[in-house]
Write a protein that binds this DNA or RNA. Structure first.
Length: 411
RNA sequence: GCCAGGGUGGGGUAGUUGGUUAUCCUAGGGGACUGUGGAUCCUCCGACCCGGGUUCGAAUCUCGGCCCUGGCCCCA
């Protein structure tokens, strides 16, 4: 039998309905904050991603050459493409721009729990606002969105200034190495590397910073931080809004282009792959030939949210089975049309089953049976049978529709 | 790329000191049965991940591969 490619998944209707339910909750939150959806190509020139993230990521991408010999890649993430799009199409649009996306990405990695080779991200980018309010808005939006999904998570907020301030005397490559150690909480590696550079005196401050959960204390540890005022403002806004988060100044994020505020979200009930959210303030536009526009955004790992939610989401449509005797099929079709026009999912027999067999089948797949036979065809009424309770009554079609709708599951 | 555990009808399983036609539940189709047949009974459909090896004989032993699950690495 033909198998699907490693790391990909098939989604049956139950699962798709659950996914769409959560997707729409996220869309609603984004919409309410004024973030409008954009869409970029599924594949881009390879260069777009290597410019952003370095050549190293080539190993982890789906790369191919088209018939014109162009080097292309299935997108491994979406931020780079959105910023490219902003430069190509919307450079002069009034700032700030609030955009969001929901799309699939591809990475060639070893699959494990919550990690697939094709996966979906819900993300937002706030382009052209370089303020504490902008930083705070994106975090508040992220929290709002995670809350809307109903998962249990921890939100960690940090700022790169502290770490960068402590490391400012080091060479750039050494800074990168330190930040990698710190992000992983690899204190032994940190110590060794510092000692080899005769900078062991930094070690205690850096470790203290990573473990620090208090803003005032962080300022003390790292000395005068240039963005102090902006950081204070951002945190004030978050606190005033009642956002639940913890401060964490060990967050380094993998990439160069993050400039200041950074944040991450973790699901509480996942295993090794428990990060469900990552974001921050960054400058990327100049890399792609645009002005040096400040941006801020996050991407949320949709599949991990679904894994975290597990079986919690049961959204079921109310289903009506319109069952009929053979000679009343035409009238039954008409009744079904009336129900469908009212927005009710209505299904009819296609197998040529008898009335009893139709009800037997309906009992497994529907909430109500609408029985149409000689009597109903003559009177214009319908017989509505609640398949959960067995209760049955004769009603005119409009009342039957009202009964089905009031039954609840229409949302 | 590395480590561990797995793979038997659509789903869940039994069977592995090698031995007839591979067990059971469930789901699905048909019928008893053309106005309530959601029940009951009968019946049908349908599987040993793939390939090589050992053997008279392999679901079972062996080797390789593929895939799944979890973890390491990485995580833009």
């Amino acid at each position: 039998m033909l198998q699907k490619p490693r790391g990909t998944r098939d989604f049956l209707p139950d699962e798709m309905e659950a996914r769409r339910t959560i997707e729409w909750r996220m869309r609603e939150v984004a919409r309410c904050w004024g973030y409008r959806e954009v869409c970029t190509p599924e594949f881009e020139n390879l260069e777009l991603f290597t410019m952003r993230s370095g050549e190293g990521i080539v190993e982890e991408m789906y790369i191919f050459e088209d018939k014109g010999g162009r080097k292309l890649a299935l997108r491994p993430e979406i931020t780079a493409a959105v910023i490219r799009m902003f430069i190509n199409e919307a450079k002069v649009a009034p700032k700030p721009l609030r955009w969001c996306y929901f799309a699939d990405c591809f990475r060639y990695e070893r699959p494990q729990k919550g990690r697939y080779r094709q996966f979906w991200q819900f993300g937002v980018e706030l382009i052209g606002a370089d303020t504490a309010r902008a930083d705070a808005e994106v975090i508040m939006l992220a929290a709002d969105m995670l809350n809307a999904t109903g998962i249990a998570y921890d939100l960690k907020v940090g700022h790169l200034s502290f770490m960068k301030n402590l490391l400012k005397d080091l060479e750039y490559s050494a800074q990168r190495r330190m930040m990698a150690h710190l992000d992983k909480k690899d204190f032994d590696g940190l110590k060794n590397t510092l000692e080899s550079m005769n900078k062991a005196d930094l070690c205690n401050s850096l470790i203290a910073l990573v473990n620090c959960r208090d803003l005032a204390e962080a300022f003390e540890i790292s000395g005068p931080v240039p963005e102090k005022e902006r950081i204070n403002q951002t945190i004030e806004i978050l606190d005033a809004a009642g956002i639940e988060y913890s401060l964490n100044f060990g967050i380094a994020r993998g990439l160069d282009y993050y400039t200041g505020m950074v944040f991450e979200g973790f699901a509480q009930n996942l295993g090794a792959e428990n990060q469900i959210l990552g974001g921050g303030a960054y400058r990327l536009a100049h890399l792609f030939g645009g002005d040096d526009v400040a941006s801020c955004g996050f991407a949320l790992g949709f599949d991990r949210v679904m894994v975290s939610l597990g079986e919690k989401i049961h959204r079921k449509d109310t289903v009506v089975a319109v069952v009929c005797t053979n000679e009343c099929r035409n009238h039954a079709l008409e009744v079904a049309r009336i129900f469908r026009r009212a927005g009710i999912r209505s299904e009819m027999d296609l197998m040529g089953r008898g009335l009893g067999a139709q009800i037997a089948h309906a009992s497994k797949s529907a909430d109500f049976a609408v029985v149409i036979g000689q009597r109903e065809t003559e009177s214009g009424n319908v017989t509505l049978k609640n398949l959960h309770t067995g209760e049955q009554k004769t009603l005119d079609p409009e009342s039957a529709i009202a009964e089905v709708v009031s039954h609840g599951a229409r949302r």
